[in-house]
Nucleic acid binder design. Structure first.
Lengths: 353, 353
DNA sequence: TTGTACGCGTTATCAT
DNA sequence: ATGATAACGCGTACAA
């Protein structure tokens, strides 16, 4: 009461105690009115407290609540990046779903650095989140896998939940989309369209879900039973640039005889297109291209890119559900191919060069 | 020591106390070793503590640290969305810079709902962050502006910092990029290229920075002094769809005589292109298009889109710097036009229709 | 250098 | 229904 509104240096934030005193009630009562769930407070008191809170501009100190309660209505999301259209869509979907369940999301980014993942889990564990969601990268042969598992187990032991998205490499609840099956179906459809000689652009970084896409595609092509199936798999750097550079560095003859490039992500497919164009190939007239993910960016790409669609909203919804209440073990969200103009039927296509 | 590793239900997380006891030292000593900055602890003790911590899998309870310290090495970022390529790039840049300063970033999304902004500030204030960074939307005539300002002031009074990005509508530290000047220069260059009859797609939502882009562009065109300058400004919904739909709904005659569409964001420019193509116009043969932001997506767009580039990294760096130590009041990061193939010189262009 | 004691803002337990 | 009082996990004077 003694300090004026003037700029008297950083003041202490308004606490529940201040509110209680201002309202002439005890601190627990104020707590019950403002934050507690059981509302057994007389109307007259209730009003005085809410008024005081508004007047003083009270905001509950979240940290204090977490400490006192022991839980935190927060989920921690560990994701490889956020500028990438795919991951940002994933993050957005998760935040949307989380908000619907009145959950805060704290995002941590690994930037594809393997060891960061372990550090982040350790750090996030300190936030006492309801759950830790690991989305994105999942290495085929996790370098610090044991430690990561140990850390996550500790988190589970203290009541936290661990949810994996698109990576079944660790022994925790997993929400997967069917990378293998999606790629397999895509290959099947493309084979039907007449494609035979394909370059598959995989990932130099050994990511499990990406490997599944490669394998699914190769299997789909093989299963088609068509004659002359010829699928070459390469593993450039896992990025737009990596795909483009690989195309740029290709042998001219090899490029010439190719009918189709399938990249394991749309991002790489777009990089491949950039490379192909730089080498004077027209799409789809000279060569067809297909990707995976069905990112939003595709709406602005010409020609429309054939890809595999993943229902990110469904994934996010399931992930948040799992984060709140444990379910079975692995659930799979379907992924299905969408054929667009970048892969027309081969028969109707001019044979060039 | 008495409990086994077995699944005996959710255990209590390991606390500093546990570590201290396990190491046979006092709790403050453990604190000094693991978290404190002054390292006046005997080497023998130090080792015992770190060993115990590792063995037990100790992680500091962040909430408790925040409470005890009163500060939090966290900045809160309030942003309109995260799936949008522009905002996700902004968020990514800020996270990158923050990490370099050993700061956590907690992201909150408004989804363009006006009132959310106020709610979020209130809520985030409870996290006791070092700073609150408001990026993105800034309304010309803020609906709940006074309350927002009051809330932010309270935050500042308690030692927090407020940093605005690209919106000088509120009386706080601001990192702006020169929307007006960038758009003005763009218009000047386009006028030089021979463009006269332009449709400007602004925003139905009254966003200050967007208004500046419109005004800058209009001014730039007018200042060119060229004959026949004819600039029409429209305000469709502020989105890809809004821009596309506006084009789709345009009068045929009006569309016919246009030479150029300038949209205040690349996102809208791409929507406009979609609309123009749906109406059978080729770009840039029939009509030219320019945007603003220079989002990453543009690398995959054909023809390459003329736009205004903003150095987001510089913006983010400045914002984080301000978040840590107050500076002047407003600093401006330059924005400069990049002419690409979507706006060729008019003289070299076929006059169609 | 190390330990004791207390405070941070909140919720929860228990009398009243 | 309300108010003392004790946690929660950690940092930090202060004393030893």
């Amino acid at each position: 009461m003694s300090d004026t509104q003037s700029d008297a240096g950083p003041r202490r934030p308004v606490t529940l105690d201040d509110v209680a005193r201002h309202a002439g009630v005890s601190q627990p009562t104020a707590s019950r009115v403002l934050n507690g769930s059981d509302r057994k407070v007389a109307e007259s008191y209730r009003k005085r407290v809410t008024d005081a809170a508004r007047e003083l501009g009270y905001t509950p100190n979240l940290a204090a609540q977490v400490i006192a309660r022991g839980s935190s209505r927060t989920v921690a999301l560990i994701i490889s990046g956020i500028s990438d259209p795919y991951f940002s869509a994933m993050a957005a979907a998760i935040m949307r779903q989380a908000e619907a369940s009145d959950l805060r999301v704290s995002i941590a980014v690994t930037d594809r650095r393997v060891d960061r993942e372990l550090d982040l889990v350790r750090e996030l564990r300190g936030q006492q989140p309801q759950a830790i969601i690991l989305a994105g990268t999942g290495y085929v042969d996790p370098p610090s896998g044991d430690q990561l598992v140990a850390e996550l187990h500790r988190f589970e032991e203290t009541g936290g939940r661990v949810v994996l998205i698109s990576r079944s490499d660790l022994p925790f609840e997993t929400v997967a989309f069917d990378n293998h099956e999606g790629a397999r179906q895509l290959a099947a459809e493309l084979a039907t369209l007449g494609y035979r000689r394909t370059l598959v652009l995989g990932s130099a970084t050994p990511l499990l879900s990406m490997q599944q896409r490669v394998e699914g595609f190769v299997a789909g092509m093989a299963e088609s039973g068509a004659d002359g199936i010829d699928t070459v798999v390469r593993h450039p750097e896992f990025s737009w640039e990596g795909a483009r550079d690989h195309i740029l560095g290709m042998d001219d003859d090899e490029l010439q005889r190719l009918q189709l490039v399938f990249a394991i992500t749309d991002d790489m497919a777009l990089g491949a297109i950039a490379g192909l164009r730089a080498r004077g190939r027209r799409i789809p007239d000279d060569i067809a291209v297909a990707g995976f993910d069905d990112i939003t960016t595709l709406r602005d790409v010409v020609p429309p890119l054939t890809t595999v669609h993943v229902a990110l909203d469904a994934v996010a919804k399931e992930a948040i559900k799992r984060a709140l209440t444990p379910d079975g073990h692995v659930s799979t969200v379907p992924a299905y191919p969408i054929i667009r103009a970048s892969t027309p039927a081969v028969s109707t296509r001019q044979v060039v060069g």
